[in-house]
Design a protein around this nucleic acid. Structure first.
Lengths: 139, 139
DNA sequence: ATAAATACATAGTAATGTGATAGGCATTAG
DNA sequence: CTAATGCCTATCACATTACTATGTATTTAT
């Protein structure tokens, strides 16, 4: 139950685009350098985001990417769903054991609620928070 | 962001033990056959549950496993935590990008709340529900 | 005592996913 | 034209998953 770097880096890209919104295209090179990530790897992550219509690309020199919609209209769920795939908490659809079904449903709903109510604007506006707590990321 | 069969089958074992509570030890063979699972694989899953003190083993013929505590005292979180490891939503502890921190914290808290408030008794008492909806497992 | 049933242990393995790296083609501003 | 950038395909090392295989140790029923 881990969110891979796909989703995390994808969100990083989208947050950067949200911060630069209205200022012309932002290149992946810029984002990669600012976040110390591999530009080539980010290319692979933004391809599905483009195909999903979440970003628009401007090709050629001084090109880059812009958000396809306002930061208030794009949610973390939009991004995570594209990059982490059709997220299945459990795989077996015809689960022979109904005992666990309600548990997964409750967890799914909880995650879904958070993802779909957090917009890129929410995330971009917290970029300057600095408090850190490593344990916070363990369940 | 998927819960593997480790966690699922582990819960299956624990739910079976909860249902048979007070009726002597239940063998893995019985549980494996009832749920159409590999007994050998279940052996590997129950080892950490035993080491964590969630179940007790009775060796020898007509032995098996019993819950180490009442089904009302053991939560889904106890089981999932043991089998899915120290669950990290994200890995980087010293995250350079604080923008996403609050998102992961919210999701973590939501999942944690569900896992820690669902007991084996809750799960065992829903064993006979039969409604099915495949889409329910996608986020 | 013996045989059956069961827990306990270790190793191997095919398939898949992750997190990249490498190289090159296509497009466009200047 | 040239540099900057997007776009595309391939490859790869590593870890994880979901088992399977092959035992050994322990206890009970007979």
């Amino acid at each position: 139950m881990r969110i891979s770097t796909k989703g995390r880096y994808g969100l990083t890209i989208m947050i950067e685009l949200a911060k630069n919104q209205g200022e012309g295209p932002t290149s992946l090179k810029t984002i990669a350098q600012a976040n110390n990530l591999s530009e080539h790897y980010l290319e692979q992550l933004i391809a599905p985001l483009r195909n999903a219509g979440l970003v628009k690309s401007i090709r050629g020199a001084y090109g880059g990417y812009i958000l396809a919609d306002a930061p208030t209209k794009i949610t973390a769920g939009d991004v995570i769903r594209v990059l982490e795939g059709p997220i299945t908490l459990v795989e077996g659809i015809e689960d022979e054991e109904p005992a666990q079904r309600e548990l997964w449903i409750r967890i799914r709903d909880a995650i879904k609620s958070v993802l779909d109510h957090t917009t890129l604007e929410d995330l971009a506006s917290h970029s300057n928070d600095t408090e850190t707590d490593g344990y916070m990321f363990y369940i």
